[in-house]
Design a binder for these strands. Structure first.
Lengths: 195, 195
DNA sequence: CGTTGTATACCGACTAGTGAATATACAGTA
DNA sequence: TACTGTATATTCACTAGTCGGTATACAACG
């Protein structure tokens, strides 16, 4: 039993992800949600408000998916990180896959720095880094200087590259690189402990 | 002495890069180019045509800049690759910097797979990988399996991340990671030769 | 005379957002 | 039980403006 507000967010999210922000009209969202535009404007004060709600609503589900992929993977931290990319590669093979909604929205809203949706996108990505840093730290790679950021760079790079060339192989390549970096970081710790 | 066509491409490129594709009207481009819309449509058959010309026009200049940065850097291949990211970090500190036009365009045109502009973007990125692969190969990292792709992933990742969070530090972090990967690849070759 | 290029003026479709009326649900009260 | 007040939620019809693209005309030039 979705509230009306939830129905609107669902409709908006689906359309925004599929087609982008500017190319989706408020009319289209209202129609998909099964109500008139005027009703939509009763629940949201503007289209910008809707964009923000879209990204805020994707934060937890996305993070939960990463968490699940990481947990159910076998092996050491490097292999578990790599598993995220492997799973993403599988997703990317679906024709419905359209890259990362956060990144695409940020590309479209360059003219609006400070837009609340961009803040939400930033918080989501920062949350991912924090989560990854925690996992890595508890795996022994204590204080892996810049490692979560490096992996995030590979992840967001893979999103962008595969969106452009539609070759999910790049997702696997990014996964290999991420595993290499984790391994290098663990070795560095081992060496410094041995000294 | 720019031809009318060149003036139009310049105006379009400037506006597209600054504001994105959909948010720029053909009227605005015509005005910036100093002619009427009807004249613009004499030289280009559609806005899509203009988008394609925009990206095609950016291919060589961008590649040349990378080439220059690589050549003028000191040190081994790893350090030269890293220099590209360092230079990019400097660019990214300018308020006019708006990420990678190819990537942003690809994010905006998700609904138009096969769009000629997307093909141009793909060719540009493939050209970058080829160029990088050549440099790496002649530096001794012969057939560095997936290395140019990995570095491209870091590069495009850095474009996307810095566009979102406006923190050029990530450009440097990507540069470090790229250097690490080059070094690891060179070592792997050394080891396999020693065996 | 014909080709190339420019200008004015316009088209139909679509845009985000709003004014004003109305339907629905539920509280207090006689 | 029946009436009334009020907040919530929804609808239709509309505004004022923008969009990509075009019909028509005409000027310059070889």
């Amino acid at each position: 039993m979705d509230s009306t507000r939830d129905k609107i967010i669902k409709a908006a999210s689906s359309l925004f992800y599929k087609q982008g922000i500017r190319s989706v009209s408020v009319d289209a969202i209202a129609e998909k949600a099964g109500l008139t535009k005027r009703s939509l404007y009763y629940h949201f004060k503007s289209k910008d408000d809707l964009i923000e709600a879209y990204l805020k609503g994707r934060d937890k589900p996305n993070l939960d998916t990463f968490e699940k992929w990481y947990e159910e993977a076998e092996g050491d931290a490097g292999q578990k990180v790599r598993a995220i990319f492997t799973n993403l590669a599988r997703s990317a093979r679906s024709p419905n896959w359209k890259g990362c909604g956060f990144l695409r929205t940020s590309a479209e809203l360059v003219t609006m720095p400070g837009h609340p949706a961009l803040k939400a996108a930033n918080q989501h990505k920062a949350g991912f880094e924090r989560w990854l840093g925690d996992r890595l730290a508890s795996a022994g790679a204590s204080h892996p200087k810049g490692l979560p950021q490096q992996i995030r760079l590979l992840l967001d790079g893979a999103f962008s590259v595969v969106l452009l060339n539609r070759d999910p192989t790049y997702m696997e390549i990014a996964g290999e690189a991420a595993q290499t970096l984790v391994k290098a970081s663990l070795n560095a710790v081992k060496v410094s402990v041995a000294d």
